[in-house]
Nucleic acid binder design. Structure first.
Lengths: 338, 338
DNA sequence: GCACGTCGTGGAAGCGCTTACAAGTGCTGC
DNA sequence: GCAGCACTTGTAAGCGCTTCCACGACGTGC
């Protein structure tokens, strides 16, 4: 009895058995006589026994917890993924531990080191930037992990991401179909794989449509509202401004809409705007945002499944799973002005 | 060496000392000769030693982790609080473990039981519904916890909340000042303390202004968009409809705005709308929402501080901290139509 | 009637760490 | 020159649990 809480020994004493037997009952082992099991269960109930998590983890070498590394929690992109992870993990009897890295590389590495030493059984890393050293470490340690939304080469790593390239092509094709010829592009944060894929999708589709991409048509962003706003102001202040802008995230697209508002440019009459992600807010802004939907929750769920699969059977090979995106047409897109 | 990872014994062997000495170095104890410390540090670096979290927790009886119970993570209210907790906990060298309860009572109780047995050192519970049994249990076990946004009697519990009553009065007074005489009110979820305080604030201020609250002026909500929409449709479809509606959360206020839109009622020209919370979206909707700001992040921070204070000194008395709200006037409020 | 297998149970080791205690060293002060 | 001290280090116990192994009781087949 420590801290007012009963231990397995207290239960054993009350039930008149050894603590090994109590352990068997707690873990549902079959080789316990019914009458003994009963006595133990009564004792457990009377004492309000709950197994000590750290002790169990130490003895078993398993915590039944998975670690989840994400940059922020004040951000609809991450919360959607987290929501999916939450749902699936809890359905499978796992808890998860959320660690926010605030996009700081050293914090990420530090968490990985600690978590992988007895804190969690496996790791989910959302939107890792580049392929950091610690991934190498995890691989050599044979510690199970899955990268979420990492759209670059990652040999030997479990990865879940969306069809960034194709999703962007779809969006650009749609804009071209509406009649747009001059389409601006605001990138995501550099050193994130999805950023390159989306840019490549844009370039490929523009080329396929026989359209020029002039200098200044592609501006650098970071997925955030502020940078999106700044880039849009720059794009829209030039003499030959684009009639449509594709932003690499919904948040950045909101920045574009605000910029248009600042400059008195009407959306969608004078400017079409397309985002990427389809966070809940996208449907709520006015006009509602046309965007490329990523199945964020599902990415979380799929990642959990892959991770747990590898926990159950370590020989299971890490795989890359690519989920389909879908163009959601709403109110921010229209044919260009004549 | 287990799992490819070095233990304290491996480090001891390489450094030619006992594992106790390694432990001293790891924990920064002073009574170690410099030269010895050096040798140990080299060995640790060479082996990439990281202390095993569960083992340490078991030996110390402390995990350096705090538990955070919240309903959802797909919700700006909770993510703001979580963001504050995150910031403060990490500043103080603590990790936190987020557990989502999806507002299910038994899940909450289950988490509390597990977490409080060796998983975390203390518990933060956001928006508990009623004062559940497990709170009693925690109190008798002397397990440290703080309730966030619990605006009801809670003897002997650490509590952090905002000035719900006063914040609501401020908002109603402002509407009355604009000339509104008929003001509708949509409540929060029942069995949440803040719900009652806000309603009381409304009634008190209406009474102070000498205004009637007629049946049908107060409708039940649950903080969510959908219920807010439904309640507003009901309120606005009646012959003598209110000229202003106060919703007990921003999400519910968004529902009201959508309802007004559905019915062709102009905001703020024909209807003023006020929310509560000031989540980031409130500033982004069109027109931007007038609302009562709760310092959500700060509530998270303050709660962490109180919790850690009690971990450091268990004799410290649990307290209730009430943080000020602030009326933020934006675009959804105006004088009533003549 | 005996060897043998099965079942239920307890003893004991071990998971990786912290820490109380003991023991050894070299120094001071008388 | 020796008691006494400070400082460093090692030994061992213990945190609460899981699980291997052994042992006794019992039932089976010959």
């Amino acid at each position: 009895m420590v801290n007012g809480r009963a231990t397995i020994f207290d239960v054993a004493r009350v039930a008149g058995v050894s603590h090994a037997t109590v352990s068997r009952v707690v873990n549902g082992r079959q080789n316990v006589r019914d009458e003994t099991r009963e006595r133990v269960e009564v004792a457990m109930r009377d004492l309000g026994y709950v197994a000590h998590v750290s002790a169990r983890a130490l003895a078993r070498g398993r915590t039944q917890v998975i670690g989840l590394l994400a940059q922020e929690v004040d951000n609809a992109f991450f919360t959607a993924v987290i929501g999916g992870v939450d749902q699936q993990a809890s359905a499978q009897g796992y808890d998860f531990m959320l660690c926010t890295t605030h996009a700081r590389r050293e914090k990420e590495a530090q968490y990985v080191a600690r978590l992988s030493r007895g804190m969690v059984d496996g790791l989910l890393i959302v939107l890792p930037r580049g392929l950091p050293d610690y991934v190498e470490q995890l691989r050599t340690d044979d510690f199970p992990f899955v990268l979420i939304d990492y759209d670059d080469e990652a040999p030997g790593c479990g990865v879940v991401n969306a069809s960034n390239h194709r999703g962007t092509r779809d969006a650009i094709r749609y804009l071209v179909g509406l009649g747009h010829r001059r389409i601006g592009f605001i990138t995501g944060r550099d050193n994130v794989g999805a950023t390159h894929s989306r840019l490549a999708g844009y370039r490929d589709e523009m080329a396929a449509a026989g359209l020029d991409v002039r200098p200044g048509d592609v501006l650098e962003g970071d997925f955030m509202e502020t940078r999106g706003h700044g880039a849009a102001i720059e794009m829209l202040s030039r003499p030959e401004r684009p009639t449509a802008i594709f932003a690499s995230s919904d948040m950045a697209a909101f920045g574009v809409m605000r910029a248009a508002d600042d400059l008195g440019i009407e959306v969608p009459g004078e400017l079409s705007v397309v985002g990427f992600d389809d966070i809940p807010e996208a449907a709520r802004v006015n006009p509602a945002l046309t965007t490329v939907r990523q199945p964020l929750r599902e990415m979380g769920r799929v990642a959990v499944n892959q991770l747990l699969g590898r926990l159950d059977d370590p020989r299971q090979e890490p795989a890359r799973v690519v989920l389909d995106t879908e163009l959601v047409v709403r109110g921010t897109t229209a044919p260009p002005p004549p």
